[in-house]
Deep mutational scan, measured.
Amino acid sequence: MAAAAAAGAGPEMVRGQVFDVGPRYTNLSYIGEGAYGMVCSAYDNVNKVRVAIKKISPFEHQTYCQRTLREIKILLRFRHENIIGINDIIRAPTIEQMKDVYIVQDLMETDLYKLLKTQHLSNDHICYFLYQILRGLKYIHSANVLHRDLKPSNLLLNTTCDLKICDFGLARVADPDHDHTGFLTEYVATRWYRAPEIMLNSKGYTKSIDIWSVGCILAEMLSNRPIFPGKHYLDQLNHILGILGSPSQEDLNCIINLKARNYLLSLPHKNKVPWNRLFPNADSKALDLLDKMLTFNPHKRIEVEQALAHPYLEQYYDPSDEPIAEAPFKFDMELDDLPKEKLKELIFEETARFQPGYRS
């Protein structure tokens, strides 16, 4: 834990890192770190609560700039109880001085990944967590956004079992017609939660990839272990087919990539493993919904509104309290091709509203 900075004593240090967030945020305490930044909790002297502050230093890398800009653009436009918001952003007053960006968010005690390492969940908890994931996802999908990296560590939890989806750095506007060349190379989302079509096709992607990830998360809540822990690309596919069985001819016809289709045709026939054999203690309604989410063919996979209306979630289902976005989200430009200098300018502009004396 960093010592509390005395008023006016300059930035606090946390594990050798400068955290320049005073005077409003003090009493910093280390939480963890990701690929390009550290997260601390801090005391907000204005709202009198502890908050989470993520320090991001992305400006050396085009990919990190892209992810940072995506996350900020999306989260500043989203407003939903099951999606983490941005409360404040701290950065230098000029673009030349801006080396880091500090993002202030609600402090959540833990995440689903940490929880599943230590606790076996009751059916009631599984049901409530799944409902909140789908409630947040309904809003995301209504904005025409794909999260693309749903996994237990991106689901934040607090002691009252509130759940918030975080990390929109890989999110995209849904565009089933656009052929994202190089899709697989830039697709760094965790393999275990990846839909089979991501490994088999490169053309376009749809909201059904997020539903697949939610199915993987439900299976993990039922058993405290990942359902498809593939060691590499082909191993991942083999794990999936080992449980779902061989795809039907109709399902194979959806695979545009001939090499991928021929690979699947070359494999020995596998039978589907019954879900109640894998999860003998699970609620039968939970397994019915799991089956509809972990469907090989993305066109037959359940959609988020149908999933919310499934009998497993009937005690929570309330369409009048499951809000959607006001308007579909649009990125003005494809960020993939922009140089990091341009992305830095866009991050600077996007964060201006939090600067003292800002006038829109």
Rank of each mutant, 00 (worst) to 15 (best):
A309L: 07
D44A: 07
H232D: 11
C127D: 10
G136Q: 05
R194Q: 02
I31G: 14
L313T: 08
H269K: 07
R70L: 01
C40A: 15
E345F: 15
I72K: 06
E60V: 02
A52I: 02
K54D: 04
D149C: 03
G10V: 00
L150V: 12
E186M: 15
I72N: 01
L184S: 01
T351R: 14
I165G: 03
P298E: 15
R261H: 08
L258D: 09
L150W: 03
V18M: 12
D210L: 02
E71T: 12
N144T: 02
R191F: 08
T351M: 14
V21L: 01
D179V: 00
V46T: 15
I211Y: 03
F183Q: 08
Y317W: 15
L244H: 09
L335I: 07
H61W: 13
N27R: 08
I133F: 01
H125S: 02
I53H: 12
K99A: 04
Q66F: 10
E314M: 15
A92R: 14
Y316E: 10
E341M: 14
H125D: 01
A5P: 14
N262R: 11
G169H: 07
K231G: 04
P268N: 12
E81T: 13
F296R: 02
L258T: 10
R91C: 07
H141R: 08
S122G: 12
P58S: 04
N144W: 09
K270P: 09
K231V: 14
L241A: 07
S208D: 12
I90K: 15
S29N: 05
V46E: 12
P11I: 15
E334Y: 10
D106H: 12
H299C: 11
D124F: 07
A174Y: 14
L294P: 04
K55V: 05
A171T: 01
G136R: 01
D210K: 02
I72C: 14
T295Y: 11
Y358M: 08
I165K: 04
V51D: 00
T26A: 09
A143S: 03
T185G: 03
T295A: 06
D44V: 06
E341A: 13
C161D: 07
G230T: 14
E349T: 14
K300N: 00
K48Y: 07
T110L: 06
H80K: 14
S57M: 07
Y64S: 08
G357M: 06
P152I: 10
E314G: 13
Y263T: 07
G37P: 03
P298A: 12
D162Y: 01
D283Y: 00
G10D: 11
L294K: 05
S248E: 11
I211P: 04
L200H: 08
I211S: 04
E197I: 02
Y139D: 09
Q62R: 09
F183I: 00
F354W: 06
L121R: 08
L157S: 07
A35L: 03
C40I: 15
D321N: 02
Y43L: 08
N253W: 09
A352T: 04
A4Q: 06
I209C: 01
L115E: 09
L265W: 14
D332T: 08
I74R: 02
D283K: 15
D106Y: 01
V304L: 08
G34I: 05
A352R: 06
N154I: 00
M38F: 11
I256T: 10
Y187S: 02
L155T: 14
T68M: 09
E220Q: 06
Y193A: 02
A52K: 02
A327P: 09
G16I: 15
T63S: 01
L200G: 06
L116C: 10
Y36L: 05
L287A: 10
D124G: 11
L222N: 08
Q119D: 13
R135Q: 12
L252I: 13
L157E: 02
P280G: 08
P319K: 11
Q105R: 02
Q236G: 03
Y64D: 08
G357C: 00
L289K: 04
L121W: 08
L146W: 15
E349L: 14
V104T: 13
V14C: 07
G136F: 07
T110Q: 06
R135W: 14
L115P: 10
I133V: 09
Q105M: 14
R301F: 07
L163D: 06
Q17H: 01
Y113N: 00
Y233Q: 03
P319S: 05
A282K: 14
L234W: 04
T351Y: 15
Y128M: 04
I324W: 10
R225A: 06
L222K: 07
P93H: 13
I53S: 06
L156H: 05
L116H: 11
A6W: 09
M13A: 04
V273K: 14
D88A: 11
G85W: 15
Y113E: 13
Y128K: 09
Y187A: 08
N253V: 05
W192I: 01
L130G: 06
D162E: 00
Y64C: 06
R191Q: 00
H299Q: 04
K138R: 03
S246H: 14
V14Y: 07
R77A: 10
E345M: 11
L290E: 02
S320Q: 12
H147W: 03
A282R: 06
H239I: 05
V214R: 04
H310S: 08
V101W: 06
Y187V: 04
I56K: 03
E60W: 13
S248N: 13
I72D: 05
T94A: 11
L112W: 09
S29Y: 14
L163K: 09
H141Q: 06
A286L: 08
L137Y: 06
R194K: 00
Y233N: 00
E96W: 14
L290F: 07
D124T: 12
V14D: 00
G136L: 04
R261W: 03
L134P: 02
I198E: 04
P328S: 05
L170W: 06
K164W: 10
H141V: 07
H180Y: 05
A309G: 08
V51K: 12
H61P: 05
K340Y: 08
S41D: 13
C254P: 06
E303I: 15
